[in-house]
């Protein structure tokens, strides 16, 4: 087909600043609405950490150290909750939307990709805040937990900020897992990882080998930060070491996700 055509002049109207802000806000709002309307997601991410906390933190504790146990588990189960929200809410939902073609519809529109990812991060932050507040209330009401207000705020702040590294991990999983197997992949990663990081049983009662392994696992570092905040870290190490470890994890997983993102462009099938 020998054609002589002149390219049409590209005139793309720019989105105004207020429309850009509205776009990011709407993306976040609808992501949150979408998640709260999926009972399985809302229930499993909130109810499971709560149930574990009641079991391990309150019911199973000795009467003598009930209060310490409830405070300790508040930090570690909070970490578990944050992780579940980020890995399921970010990782599994991304894997599904990507694998089932929905992300493609969004990418064919002028939506900035950052709006999509920030909305998922926002939803993870909101859900972990809810979980932390619930755990805290249960701990205070039934576990005898007593924390100064500032300490409680610090604990919640640390664990909610922990959404960032785990969302990065979810992002990487979302780009490599298939939609049907993503939930299984996440379970296979996060259940052993939380056990090995001492979230259910303190590391001090775990074998030596596992204790060494824990230091390379992100939940270990987040839980140590949370335990530091409530004054219950077994061997208080400088907080910046854990922050650095979590930052390194975040960068590593973002790098992996970026690779997956590029790989997607070449692989699209249809």
């Amino acid at each position: 087909m020998a054609t002589t055509t002149f390219p049409a002049v590209l005139a793309v109207p720019r989105r105004s600043l207020s429309r850009t802000i509205a776009l990011y806000a709407k993306e976040a709002k609808y992501e949150l609405i979408n998640k709260t309307r999926i009972p399985v997601y809302a229930l499993s991410t909130i109810a499971i950490p709560l149930m574990f906390y009641v079991l391990f933190g309150i019911v199973l504790g000795n009467a003598s150290d009930r209060r310490d146990n409830a405070t300790y588990m508040l930090a570690t189960m909070g970490c578990f909750g944050t992780m579940a929200v980020a890995l399921f809410g970010f990782g599994v939902s991304l894997a599904m939307e990507r694998g089932q073609g929905w992300l493609q519809v969004k990418r064919a529109s002028p939506m900035p990709v950052s709006a999509y990812f920030l909305a998922k991060l926002f939803a993870a932050v909101v859900f972990s805040t809810v979980i932390m507040l619930l755990l805290l209330s249960v701990g205070i009401a039934f576990g005898g937990v007593r924390l100064p207000f500032a300490t409680a705020v610090e604990l919640v702040g640390i664990l909610v900020a922990g959404s960032i590294p785990f969302s990065a991990m979810g992002l990487a999983i979302g780009y490599f897992a298939k939609p049907n197997s993503a939930p299984a992949v996440v379970n296979l990663i996060y259940l052993p990882m939380s056990f090995c990081s001492g979230l259910w049983i303190p590391l001090s009662v775990l074998p030596h080998g596992l204790r060494a392994l824990a230091t390379i696992l992100p939940p270990y570092h987040l839980s140590q930060l949370a335990l530091n905040a409530v004054g219950m870290a077994p061997n208080p190490t400088p907080a910046w070491g854990h922050v650095e470890a979590l930052l390194a994890c975040t960068l590593l997983f973002l790098g992996l996700a970026a690779w997956g993102y590029r790989r997607d462009e070449g692989k699209l099938y249809g």
């Binding site: 590209l10 793309v12 109207p13 989105r15 609808y30 609405i33 979408n34 309307r37 999926i38 599904m96 939307e97 694998g99 089932q100 073609g101 929905w102 493609q104 519809v105 064919a108 529109s109 002028p110 249809g270």
Partner: peptide, 20 residues
């Protein structure tokens, strides 16, 4: 990534978020 503002697309999708 510039031209999408002037395009619209109806694609074949496996699954659309159903709760919205």
């Amino acid at each position: 990534g510039q031209v999408q503002a002037r395009l619209g697309a109806m694609l074949q999708v496996g699954r659309v978020p159903e709760t919205l």
